Amino acid sequence: MAEQRRNQRPSGGKPTGGGRPSSSRGSEGRPDRGGRPERGGRPDRGGRQDSRGDRDARGGQSRDRRQSGPRGAGGGRYVEKEAPRSADQAVYDGPELPEDITGKELDRAVIAQLKGLPEKLAARVARHLAAAGALIDEDPETAYQHTLAARARAPRLAVVREAAGEAAYAAGHYSEALADLRAAKRMNGATAYLPIIADCHRALGQPEQALKLAKSPSVANFESEAKAEMTIVEAGARRDMGQMDAALRTLELAPLQSKNRAPWVVRLRYAYADTLEAAGRTTDALAWFHRTHAIDGDELTDAAERAALLEKTQRD
């Protein structure tokens, strides 16, 4: 739920993850079975090879032609061994799915988008997406692996690519996040991904690309929360380029004085306080950390601790 998880997005300094697979946006992508069995079975493990065959045509199991006795007297027999899973097959399988995850936890809009898949395949993809959503806070890496399993089964669904992108972002895999979110945007034309895409560019050492996205015409039409996210990323990109004054001006044009106590106001104030401290304006930074803490009832930031540390530094 991208719109519900902006609280851990960047504060203007180093990019930090925190996206959750979305349960609200649409997809125009057509289900892709990728050469896999019609009913969502596992990928083909290789098919026949030569006449001796290391694999059979059905399941990819190795056949070891060791004899259990003399030929013609009880005869040779095949001893079947399970072939080791390849890296691609391991990704396709994904992490073990918790028994209490059914897929029904997803938003109805997401479930509706999965209906174009065969029933069993849709159910499996839904369970992986739901598991990713449940794990994104405590174990983003495993959440990401769940989204990869979903993507392996349905790579042409925008909602799946979005989920993979946001989980990759949360786990710190910025190149992968950038690729998947761009793919999702191509599929459904959504611009809501732009702040995360821009921050991925920052994390990859491309602040100029982040600034280009911040100046996109669509940003002017963003709702307050998304606009605040892009402002924070833009200010962070300016900091990355050593343009501290420009970073401060970017944040000062935002509604820092808003009486709204929404998380996006908390994050804007925190980003401003953090940038003031980075610029050496510690007295101003202290005041803004206090102002941040005053509206941060859910403790989304460590503003109180930062203020206490600055106060201690000033006393010493």
Rank of each mutant, 00 (worst) to 15 (best):
S23T: 11
L178A: 09
A285W: 02
R306Q: 12
H293P: 04
E166Q: 13
H146A: 12
P21F: 05
A143T: 10
D107K: 15
A262F: 01
D44H: 12
E3I: 08
T275L: 11
A167V: 12
V159Q: 09
G29T: 03
M230D: 00
T283H: 10
A57C: 04
R30D: 07
P43C: 04
R202Y: 06
C200Q: 00
V233A: 12
Q314H: 07
P255E: 11
L213V: 10
Q243Y: 12
A235S: 14
A154T: 08
D32M: 07
R5T: 13
A203T: 00
E28Y: 06
L248I: 04
A168L: 10
E225S: 15
S24E: 10
E299N: 06
M230K: 00
G297D: 13
D54V: 13
S68L: 11
L211E: 03
P207M: 09
R151D: 11
V266S: 03
A126Y: 07
A278M: 05
D50I: 02
G59R: 14
C200R: 00
A198G: 00
T16Y: 05
E99R: 15
G18F: 11
I295F: 07
S27Y: 02
R25D: 08
A287S: 09
S68I: 15
E234R: 13
D93V: 15
R45G: 06
D88F: 11
G19F: 08
R71E: 10
H128W: 05
D93N: 06
K104S: 13
H290C: 03
L211K: 02
E138A: 13
A183T: 15
E82C: 01
V233R: 02
G18S: 07
L310G: 10
E299T: 05
K215D: 11
Q243G: 01
G34Q: 14
A246M: 08
A184Y: 05
V91E: 11
Q49H: 08
R48C: 00
R42E: 12
A192P: 00
S216E: 07
E223R: 09
H173A: 13
E162V: 08
A273T: 04
Q4F: 09
T301Y: 03
R85Y: 04
R108W: 01
Q4N: 13
A73D: 11
R291E: 11
K115H: 10
M1A: 07
G72T: 01
A262C: 02
L114R: 03
D274P: 02
E311H: 07
A123V: 09
S86E: 09
Y144N: 05
T282W: 04
A134I: 02
E105A: 06
G116F: 00
L106C: 08
Q67Y: 11
G172N: 07
D137M: 02
Q145N: 04
L276D: 00
R85V: 09
R291S: 07
D240M: 09
A262G: 12
V233W: 06
G205T: 04
E28R: 13
L286I: 01
N260S: 15
G242Y: 04
H173R: 15
R202F: 14
N7G: 00
R182K: 15
Q89V: 13
A131H: 15
A308G: 11
R65D: 07
